[in-house]
Structures are given as structure tokens and as C-alpha cells.
Design a protein around this nucleic acid. Structure first.
Lengths: 182, 182, 182, 182
DNA sequence: AATGAATGAGTTTTCATTCAT
DNA sequence: GATGAATGAAAACTCATTCAT
């Protein structure tokens, strides 16, 4: 669609994860993307903007993956398992993306409104937890807390163990389910 | 003991959490600490060294807090509850420290050997999980994974909810226990 | 050809000779060259690199001048006279260049390999001395020593007497010839 | 006599020659001399002053060595040979001192009046040349030029060949003599 | 639209010098 | 006198951003 834009995104992603924000200059991103510095500024008005758009895109993509194939009529546990399996597969499919999200999620460079925008996409997950609570199979507590705890545990596991296998994934999802189940 | 060194540590902590590493210049840290820039370089040979020593100190302090009052003869669940209660209290007692650890734990500026040094301090926690597994009350799986998942879930919850109350804390610890228990 | 690069070279030359390396900041060179500091770093990656390239360029230029019009078929004494006349004229044509070479030739900031590169350019001078020795009109000794002594004497004279006249030049060349002749 | 002062002098000499002025801090000199920084400032009011006093002392010492055993009633050629032999022996006895003189002789950090003070000590050498000219065995020209050329040639040779042997020394003195003799 | 040389504010770091002990 | 921690001005260098081509 926008091949140059995508080149810039993927170069930025790679460099930011490998070297950190401080050590990743606009010049370096341009070189890696195979374009001039000036060109980058035709696509993104500033470095900050580039980072924010990159974050938004990756996070959005990740959430879409998570929600993929999720059907609100499926049993809650099956939805839960499916969602986290999707999440883990996405993280493993491109470790750069997962590391980027972990590293920049709390960075002051990411605008607060981007974080808010993202939360709103998780509505189907919220609905799933609501259903589970209504059925009495999930702990009756603040849903955001349920999501956050589960996500925190799983992400930490994936950061620790990027070469995880099928059995490891099943174990992690089991832990996540045990944490939230009634 | 070393009042100036401590001043530098606490200014750096405050500024790094509030503004991020990029936006925290050595000059700014010196001003906040009430000393000259040169003085800082008498204590720390570089900015990188300052960040690493700060990370090591806070992480060490945190682990000492976690292990505080822990007795290997206590029942496993009681140890588990005690340890995470300690951890949460430490995080809440100084939110800057907790946020700093979360933000810089995976930063490329923190040397890998610092992370390794820290892992070795968690031996009593490892022993606790071993005991739990031997007694058949904790999932029989890789202990590091148990620690990482639990810590990830709890930390994410605390970042999300810095004003958590007693009841919230109990709920989180309950989730953590359910995640690891057999 | 490269006007900006040349501007930087000539400002650096002037300032380094007039004020010494210590007192010649990159900022000062940029101001004198009429460009921004950053621009200088587009041409030279460091101050050290700038000094070495300046040294190499001036020394190369000087040797080219010395060898100018030199014909290996000319009588040895005529070659000798011509060569040193060339050298002296070059030194007098731009006293800054001569002073720079004298001041920085033994400076620790100039890389050893630059000095070696330069020596290899003096091959025609070496050939001239070889011819003179073979003809029995020049002292039969290590050629490098002959070159070094002569050059040392002449350079010292020129540093001492920058306003030297035609007669003074002839006297110096005479001294140099007497020093090496059989 | 002033042991600490001498310690400072010899540390400064060593470091300045090995590392250059830029890379030789007052702190480093103090460490090498085994005293505190403050102590150095009791002996020398500034770094510049230290360098100038060091230069003056070494140059004076060198000239004293050159003049040692020189008798105005000795034949001119013998005086000449003796003087340069003295000079070369001094240079070889402590290569640091020779290199220091060569490196800092034209440095802007050395005050002009120090250079003038030194010239006046060379009176016996001047007298020797005058005697030689009067006797018709030395070129009838400006004496300063004779001194400068000879010294320049010899010094350059010594810098080039710090491991020179007895035979090499004789050759150099021969060249110097040939350069000035009628 | 694409480019990259030019820019200078801002960064990390150094070091001569001071002064309280 | 001896000391060295404290200082901050000044240095080398970086890099996001601009703009003429």
C-alpha cells in the first residue's frame, strides 16, 4: 500500500528494539529504510510522531490478532484460551514487535491518548470476562484488573522465554486461566 | 553515610521516572541534587554507570524487602503470601522505585550482568517454590517461569493501579496464588 | 572542488598555528570557516581526524613542491639545490603551513602511520642521494640520516628567520650541501 | 633540596612527553608524583607556570651540560666537537628531556621571555663561533644562523635515531662541522 | 515527492582551580 | 603545608529538523 512508509516502520522497529531509542537516530532509520532523511519527514512530522504511530500500529495489529476468530458465543474458557493463544502466537511471530511493545508501553514518549485509544479496542475481551463472571466461572472483580494481571504474567513469561514451545505455551495459558477462574 | 551520593541517586530516580532517560540530562540531575555537574562525575564515571548503579541498588533493596521476615519453615502458602505482600508494600511505599524498575528493567542501558547478579538473590524464593512442588501444592514446572509469571502479573497490576487498597492487594495475591497452585 | 572542506582546512591551519591545539576549539574553527559546528563533523568525524588530514595534506603538498621540476638525470648537486630551493620557497610562500608542520610533526595527536605514508613519498630524494653516494660526492652513510639532518637544519633556520632573503637562502643551502658532501 | 618539587617536575616531564599536554591533567601529574593536587598548587600557581618552569629548568640544565668543560682557549674545532658531544650525551642520557624540549620549544604555552632568557646563556657558544670566524675556519655569517642550523640538524637526527651509537654520533658531528666550516 | 548537506541547541564529559579541613 | 572533594566553564560531539535543489 505505502511501501516506503512500511519500510520506515520496519527499520524503526528493528533499530529501536536492538539499540534503544537514544541510540536510534533518524539518520540511522533512514539508512536502514533505504531512503533519505528528508523523505521520512514527508511521512512523519517528527521522531516522536513516528514512534507514536509505530506503537499504535503494532498494538492495533496485536489486538486484531488477539481478537481473530473470537466468537462471543463460544464458551468463555475456549474464548480465553483462543485469545491468549492468538496473543502468544503474534508475539512469537515477530519478537521485535513484542519487545517493542514491552519497552515503549510505559515510555514517556508515547502519548497518553494513544494508550486510551487502544484500551477501547479490547471491548470483546471485556465482554468475554463479563460473560465469565455472569456464569460464575471467573472471579467477580474489576475486569481491567483481570486483563492487566493476565497480560502482565503472560508478557513477562514471553520476554523471559522467547523460544518457548507448544507445551510451555499451554502451561502459561493454564496459569493465566487459573489466576482468573473462580 | 554518603549523603551526596544519596542525593544524586534520589534526584536521578525522580527525574528518570518523571521524564524518561532521554529528557533527563546530567545537568538536570545535578541541579535537583543541589551539586555541581563535576561532583556527580566524582561519584559516577558516566551517566550509564549512574543508571546501572541506581538500578542495582533499588532492585537489591526491593529483593531484601521481599525476603524480609521470610522463614523457610513457614508453610508454603504463608511464605508466598508474605513475600508478595512485602513486594507490594515496597512498590507502594515508593512508587518512583517501582516505576523505575519497570521502565528500565529491559532497557538496553542496563548491563546484562546486573540482571544476572540480581537473579542470584532470589534463592529463598526458589527454595519456597521447590518446597511447594515437593509438597504437591504448587504446579510442577520450571521455577523461573513460576516466578516470572507471578511477578509480571503483580507488577502490571500495580502499575495500572498505584492507589490500590488492602482489598485490592488481597485479590491480586489470590490471583497469583491461584496461578501457581496445583 | 570542495570549498567548504577547504575553508575548514584553512581556518584550522591558521588557528592551530596562532593559538596552539589546546586553545583551538572546534567551535572557533567553525566560526572562522563560516559554518556551523555540525557541518565540520560532516567532513571530519573528530578533531583528531581533522588534524591528521590537515597534516597529511600539507605535508603531501610540500613534498610535491619539493619534487617539482626535479629530474633524476640532472647532476646531483643541481638536484639537491633545486629540491631545497623548492622546499624553502614552499615554506616561505605560506609560513602557516611550515610552522604547522614543525609544530605538529612530533605531536602525539598525529598518527604514526601518517608519518610512514609520507616517508614513502620521498623516494626521488633518496634516489638523488644514492646517485651522489655512487658518484663519490656525497658522504657514504645512511640516506635517511642525510635527509633528516639536512631537513632539520634548514627547517630550524627558516623557523628562526621567516623573513629570509635570497642571499640567506643561498647560504643555508650551501650549509646543507657542505654537511652532506664528501 | 626540594624533593617534592623535583617529584612533580619529573612526573610532569614523563607524562607530557608520553601523552602530550592535552592528555596530561594536573590530577594525573599529582598522582604520578605521589602528592595531592592542592600540594602542586603550593609549588606552582598554575599549569602554565609549571610547564614554563619545567621548560626553563631542562633547557638550562641542557645548556649547562653543553658548556661543561668548554674552554675558550681550546682550538675552535675541539670546542665545537666537545660542545655537540656534550649536547648529544645529555639528549641521550634522558630521552624524555630531549623530546620535551623538541615538542614544547615552539609551543604557544611557553612564554617568549623564557626563550630569550635561554638565548643569553649561549654566549660561550657565540664566542666560539666568533673565534672560528676570526680565524677564518668557520663561515663568515650571522652566528645565530650557524647555531640554529647546526642545532636543528643534530636535534632532528637524534629524534629520528634515539638509539644512536658512538659511530653515528661521530658522523653527525662531522656533518655539523662540515656545514659550518669555511 | 525525494534528497541530504547544513545547522546549532543541547548533551555528555573533562579538568584547572579553589578552599575548607 | 598538605589534601582532595567540589565546582562550573568550556570542550568535543550528537542529532532532530530544515530547506534549497
Amino acid at each position: 500500500m505505502m511501501p516506503k512508509r512500511d519500510d520506515i516502520f520496519s527499520s524503526a522497529l528493528k533499530l529501536l528494539v536492538e539499540r534503544g531509542e537514544q541510540a536510534t537516530s533518524m539518520k540511522l532509520i533512514a539508512q536502514e529504510a533505504g531512503c533519505g532523511i528528508g523523505t521520512m519527514y514527508n511521512y512523519f512530522p517528527s521522531k516522536e510522531d513516528l514512534l507514536n504511530r509505530l506503537y499504535l500500529r503494532i498494538k492495533t495489529e496485536g489486538i486484531e490478532q488477539i481478537l481473530n476468530g473470537l466468537d462471543s458465543k463460544m464458551p468463555v474458557k475456549q474464548q480465553f484460551t483462543q485469545a491468549w493463544l492468538n496473543a502468544i502466537r503474534y508475539a512469537l511471530s515477530d519478537p521485535y514487535k513484542h519487545k517493542f511493545i514491552e519497552a515503549y508501553g510505559h515510555s514517556p514518549i508515547i502519548d497518553a491518548d494513544v494508550s486510551i485509544k487502544i484500551m477501547s479496542m479490547l471491548q470483546p475481551i471485556v465482554a468475554m470476562f463479563e460473560k465469565g463472571i455472569a456464569e460464575g466461572i471467573i472471579k467477580d472483580m474489576d475486569i481491567l484488573q483481570l486483563v492487566v494481571f493476565t497480560q502482565g504474567g503472560i508478557n513477562a513469561s514471553l520476554m523471559q522465554q522467547p523460544e518457548i514451545d507448544k507445551k510451555g505455551i499451554d502451561i502459561i495459558i493454564q496459569m493465566a486461566w487459573d489466576a482468573v477462574k473462580q
